[in-house]
Amino acid sequence: HNLTITQGKLFFHYNPKLCLSEIHKMEEVSGTKGRQERNDIALKTNGDQASCENELLKFSYIRTSFDKILLRWEPYWPPDFRDLLGFMLFYKEAPYQNVTEFDGQDACGSNSWTVVDIDPPLRSNDPKSQNHPGWLMRGLKPWTQYAIFVKTLVTFSDERRTYGAKSDIIYVQTDATNPSVPLDPISVSNSSSQIILKWKPPSDPNGNITHYLVFWERQAEDSELFELDYCLKGLKLPSRTWSPPFESEDSQKHNQSEYEDSAGECCSCPKTDSQILKELEESSFRKTFEDYLHNVVFVPRKTSSGTGAEDPRPSRKRRSLGDVGNVTVAVPTVAAFPNTSSTSVPTSPEEHRPFEKVVNKESLVISGLRHFTGYRIELQACNQDTPEERCSVAAYVSARTMPEAKADDIVGPVTHEIFENNVVHLMWQEPKEPNGLIVLYEVSYRRYGDEELHLCVSRKHFALERGCRLRGLSPGNYSVRIRATSLAGNGSWTEPTYFYVTDYLDVPSNIA
Rank of each mutant, 00 (worst) to 15 (best):
K460N: 15
H371V: 06
V443K: 00
H416P: 10
F499R: 01
V501T: 04
K460A: 11
L464K: 11
T210P: 02
T210Y: 06
P475G: 10
Y478V: 01
S367F: 07
Y445F: 05
C266M: 05
D311R: 07
K357H: 03
G489I: 09
F246R: 05
S398H: 12
P245M: 03
G489H: 14
S203T: 10
F337M: 15
R459C: 15
R286Q: 06
N326P: 12
G322T: 10
W216Q: 06
P403K: 11
P508K: 07
P270K: 10
I482L: 08
V414F: 03
D408S: 02
C456T: 02
A407R: 11
R370S: 14
E282M: 05
F462D: 02
S251L: 13
E442H: 07
Y498H: 12
V423W: 05
C269N: 10
L437H: 04
L426M: 14
H352F: 14
V443E: 00
S348P: 13
W216S: 03
F298M: 14
E433V: 14
S257R: 07
D506M: 09
W216C: 09
G374P: 10
R318G: 03
L453E: 04
D222Y: 12
F226S: 07
S223A: 11
N422F: 04
Q219C: 04
E495N: 12
S320E: 09
C468Q: 06
W216G: 04
E290S: 10
E221K: 11
G472T: 06
N383S: 04
Y441I: 00
P434H: 04
S492F: 11
T401L: 03
R466W: 03
K253V: 01
D204S: 15
V457N: 02
E227Q: 09
R471T: 09
K357A: 12
S283Y: 14
E217R: 13
L487N: 07
E281A: 12
S458A: 08
P332Y: 04
H416M: 11
S305P: 13
T210N: 03
R319Y: 03
Y375T: 02
R400A: 07
P349C: 12
T415K: 15
F289Q: 05
R400D: 05
F337D: 07
S509W: 07
E260H: 15
A405R: 12
G489P: 02
G325E: 06
Y396A: 07
K361M: 08
M427F: 13
E442T: 09
V214I: 14
H416G: 11
F462E: 02
V345K: 06
D409K: 09
N383V: 09
V501F: 08
A405E: 12
L228T: 07
E452T: 05
V501Y: 08
N339R: 12
E247H: 09
S398Q: 14
H352Y: 06
V345A: 07
P312D: 14
L228F: 12
K460M: 11
H371I: 10
R447Q: 14
S320P: 06
A220I: 10
G467S: 02
S243W: 08
A381I: 02
P475I: 08
R313P: 14
K236R: 07
V214E: 00
T303C: 06
V397S: 11
T485L: 14
V439H: 09
G322P: 13
L470E: 00
V297Q: 15
S341C: 10
Y498L: 06
L379R: 00
H371N: 03
V327C: 15
Y212F: 15
L364G: 05
P332S: 13
E249C: 10
S305V: 12
G306T: 12
K361G: 07
E388C: 14
S341Q: 15
V423P: 02
N295F: 10
F372R: 04
C382P: 01
Q256S: 06
F289V: 12
P332Q: 13
G472P: 06
Q275P: 07
L437G: 04
W428L: 00
H371Q: 09
G436S: 02
S223E: 14
K287P: 11
C391Q: 02
T333N: 08
S392T: 02
V327R: 12
P403W: 13
Y500T: 09
D503N: 13
V297D: 10
Q275D: 07
N435K: 00
E351Y: 15
R483E: 01
D450S: 14
A336F: 10
C269V: 08
L437R: 14
G306Q: 14
L453R: 02
E290C: 03
W216L: 13
I209K: 15
R466Q: 04
V414N: 01
G308C: 14
K361S: 10
N339H: 09
E217T: 12
S223V: 11
V214K: 00
T401G: 00
F215A: 15
S203F: 13
R459S: 10
E430L: 03
T210S: 15
A407Y: 06
E279T: 11
